[in-house]
Structure formats: structure tokens, C-alpha cells
Measured scan of single mutants.
Amino acid sequence: MAAGGDHGSPDSYRSPLASRYASPEMCFVFSDRYKFRTWRQLWLWLAEAEQTLGLPITDEQIQEMKSNLENIDFKMAAEEEKRLRHDVMAHVHTFGHCCPKAAGIIHLGATSCYVGDNTDLIILRNALDLLLPKLARVISRLADFAKERASLPTLGFTHFQPAQLTTVGKRCCLWIQDLCMDLQNLKRVRDDLRFRGVKGTTGTQASFLQLFEGDDHKVEQLDKMVTEKAGFKRAFIITGQTYTRKVDIEVLSVLASLGASVHKICTDIRLLANLKEMEEPFEKQQIGSSAMPYKRNPMRSERCCSLARHLMTLVMDPLQTASVQWFERTLDDSANRRICLAEAFLTADTILNTLQNISEGLVVYPKVIERRIRQELPFMATENIIMAMVKAGGSRQDCHEKIRVLSQQAASVVKQEGGDNDLIERIQVDAYFSPIHSQLDHLLDPSSFTGRASQQVQRFLEEEVYPLLKPYESVMKVKAELCL
């Protein structure tokens, strides 16, 4: 049975990233139509530049190519590739079939990587351009969430054990800070992308030097003109047959890092959902379990974690691919890159769409948070109580021993009897502590235990987050809708 299948058929496997999760716009960027249309555009740009620099290419040939950029006979191309065992030459023939007058000058002087690699770089750039505003929107939604809850005390956790208090907004800023680093890295790697350009079979530009009869300047002009037509500021000066596969490492490393950030955020949300302090959106008709109707599973956060793990592992592909590119190139890269580049971007696209949807509907339960604080705060307040007693004339050592005994009794009630923490009640009825009984409410005010959390939130948002989001103001209103 021949390899390949009808990918629109229910009898043929289709990647869930495309069929179930990723956005239509990201799927289109990695589609065959987008790819092969870009090949034709690159052939047109090459012909236009070659004509401008004096090669015998007519206006009629150029116009014929322009008129057929979208006229792609995919069936013919597939048949040609089956016959020739070469995808680029299959599309040269297919393009030439609908451009008979231009057929002889299509791909003039070029090698397969002229269309293959340059198209990949265009796709990487455009895919990054799709991700950047999506990530900015996630940051914006979380920034709104953090600002609104900047002063809401909550129990902090280290080692997932109760620690000092923080605020809900401050905790959210930990998430935002990681995503801001990801946004900066995505922008950097996007701006650092260079075009492969017009380089020939081993990167020496020998074929173009021959076409222009040894004119170095025209060869350099050709490279520059096509690079500018493709919208790049610069091209690699040095290439082998391909652009260095280190570029793929750079791009997928940034995406993998984004995956790590999203995994951490969504894990926190899942843990908070278990504590009943916070939940992701839950639709009115949504079913959490087929057997347990009360369940409210954090399905979206779980999906993000599941896909983020996949995204983090994909960076190993370009690392290994770059390491086995012998001399000017081997074909070890080809099949692998067809999979890992598309999957990385479709996965990143999915987790950003999902995280935006989550961040637009996060639900906080202040009463649950308050109750958990009441359970733990008495123990945390013991040092403040000791200091207040010393100020009232008591002995630190005597007070410490009193607190120690009462704390152990209260802990026994919590752990052995399943009761509430009654340390404060014990202190309130103990005559030894009568000098500070009137101060206990103040000493137990949760806001006095959150330090500068709310001020940190305000400063972080104003100095770091809002300036970073400013270039994306025009796209901030787009909502994230999930079908599944």
C-alpha cells in the first residue's frame, strides 16, 4: 500500500493539533497551500530580480507567473513527485505547466533550498508574528487579574506546605514575570531571523556568478533584492546548502521555554482548584465526569500541561538535527523538520489560546482563602504575639514557653481530632496574655502579614508589564474561544 493518505478522510490519521486544537490561522501558515504558494512567490521574486539585473526574462513571463501564483494543481504535483521522487522539481514542473512561456526560467540558477529553506524562514517569521500578540493578550488578562487582587491576602506555599502570606495578585505576578520573559525572547528570536537568500547549491553562489558572467556586484544585488522582497532586513552571508540548523534550535528553545512557563502556571491553577481557592472557567453544560456528576475538573489547565510537556520535548529534535548536518548538509534534517517545526508552533498556539481562555474567566473564592488563612495564621502570628507581650512588660522566655504549650495543644486538636485551630481562643482565655487581649485582632490582621506584596504588584505592572504590552494595544480586544 502506498504511503500517505487522504487526510480529510475519517479513515486516515490526522494530527489532533490540526484537527482538534490549533487555530485556523496557525494551521494555514503550515498548510501545503501556504507552503507551495510561497515557493511560487519566491520563484517570481527571483525572476523579477534577475530581470532587473539584466537576464533575458520578459515582462510577459513575469506576468504569467504572477497570474498563476494561486493556480496550484495539487493532484498534478503529487503525481509528479511520485514520478520524480523530488518535491521541488515536482512543483517546478507543475508551475511550468500553467506558465508555459515562463517554464524555462522558473528556478533559474537556484537549488531546492532556495524555495525550501527560504519558505521555512518566512513561515517561522509569520508563525512567530501570530504567537506574539496571543502571548501579549494572556499577559494582559493576567495583569488585569493581578491588579484587581493585588491586596487580597492568601496563604503562600513553599514545598506545598503553608508559608508566609502573600497576595493573590502577587502570586499571579510570578506567572506574568515568566511570560514577559517569554514574550521578550519570542520577539528577540523573531527579529534575529535572517533570510537564507540566493546562495546556490553549497552556499557559494557559483551558479549565479556564472549567470551574471562573473559580476560579483550583481550577485550581491540579486541576494539583497530577493531578501528585501521577502520582507527581511538581512540575509546570511555564510550558508551551506541550507541555512544553519542552529536557527531551528533557537526558535524551538524559546517555544519550549514558553511551554515550561505555561505548565507551571496551569499546575498552580490545578492545585488551587483542589484547594477550592480558584477555578478555571466551567461552562453551564460542561460535564466533569461521566460517573461523578459533582466533579469540576480543571480540564483546560490539564490540557495545557499535557501539550506543554510535548512542546518542551520537541527542542531535542533540532538539537540532534543540527549535530548531524555533515559538511554542507545531509538530508537527516528533512523529514524531522517537516514534523517538529509545525508541531512546535501548533502546540504553542494551542496552549496560548487555551491559557487566554482560562485567564479571561478565572474565578476566585475569597471566603475559602480566608478560612485557610484562619487555619494557619495563628501559628504564624506567634512571633508577633511574643513581641507584643514583651512590649507590655512580659518575659520573652516565659511567653515563648506559654505559646509553645498552647500551640501544641491547638495542633493536637487540628491533627488528632480534625478540629479547627483554636490557638487564639486559648490565648484569649489565658490570664497571662490579658495585657494584649485587646491587640489580638490587630495582630491577626492578614494584611499585616503580606509585606509589600501589593506595592510590588503595582510597581511591576507599571514599570515592566504595561510598557512591554504597549506595541500590542491594537490587538488586545480579541477574545479566545474554545470549541473543545
Rank of each mutant, 00 (worst) to 15 (best):
A2P: 09
A3I: 15
G8N: 15
D11E: 13
S19G: 13
R20Y: 00
M26D: 03
S31T: 10
K35V: 13
L46I: 06
A47C: 05
A47P: 04
E48I: 12
E50Y: 09
G54F: 12
P56F: 07
D59M: 08
E60K: 11
I62N: 07
E64R: 08
M65I: 11
L69K: 09
N71H: 10
K75F: 09
A77Y: 15
E81H: 04
L84Y: 09
H86T: 01
M89Y: 07
H93C: 13
H93G: 13
H97N: 13
A103V: 13
I105N: 12
I105P: 03
L108H: 09
A110T: 13
A110M: 05
A110S: 08
T119L: 10
L121Y: 03
A127S: 11
L128G: 13
L130C: 09
L132M: 11
D144E: 14
D144P: 12
F145T: 11
R149M: 14
P153I: 10
G156C: 06
T158N: 00
F160L: 07
F160Q: 00
P162C: 09
T167A: 01
K170R: 14
C173F: 01
C173V: 06
W175G: 07
W175I: 04
Q177P: 02
L183R: 03
N185K: 08
N185F: 07
L186T: 12
F195N: 03
K199P: 00
A206S: 06
S207G: 14
S207W: 05
F208G: 06
L209A: 14
Q210R: 15
E213K: 15
H217S: 14
V219A: 06
E220C: 12
L222W: 01
M225R: 11
V226M: 15
G231F: 06
I237K: 09
I237N: 08
I238F: 02
T239A: 15
T244H: 15
V247N: 07
I249M: 07
E250K: 08
S253A: 12
V254W: 06
A256F: 02
A256G: 11
S257Y: 06
H263W: 03
H263T: 12
K264D: 04
I265Q: 15
C266Q: 10
I269M: 06
R270N: 02
L271R: 02
N274F: 12
K276Y: 08
K276V: 05
E279Q: 09
E280C: 05
F282L: 11
F282P: 00
E283I: 15
I287G: 01
S289Y: 01
S290K: 03
S290G: 03
R303N: 04
L307F: 15
L307N: 15
L307K: 09
H310Q: 06
M312Y: 05
P318T: 07
Q320A: 09
S323G: 08
S323W: 00
T330E: 00
D332Q: 00
S334C: 05
R337A: 02
R338F: 00
I339D: 03
I339E: 02
F345A: 12
T347A: 15
T347H: 07
T350D: 14
N353I: 11
L355C: 11
Q356L: 13
N357W: 04
I358Q: 07
S359H: 14
G361S: 14
L362C: 08
L362V: 08
K367G: 08
L377H: 02
M380C: 04
N384I: 13
I385M: 07
I385F: 08
I386L: 03
A392K: 12
G394T: 10
Q409D: 10
A410Y: 04
A411R: 07
S412A: 10
S412P: 04
Q416D: 14
G419Q: 11
D420V: 04
D422E: 09
L423S: 05
I424P: 10
E425L: 09
E425Y: 13
R426Y: 09
Y432T: 09
Y432C: 08
Y432I: 06
F433L: 06
I436H: 03
D441G: 12
H442W: 12
P446V: 04
S448A: 14
T450G: 04
V457E: 04
V457M: 04
R459V: 08
F460M: 09
E463P: 03
E464G: 09
V465M: 14
K470D: 15
Y472A: 15
K477F: 14
V478I: 09
L482F: 13
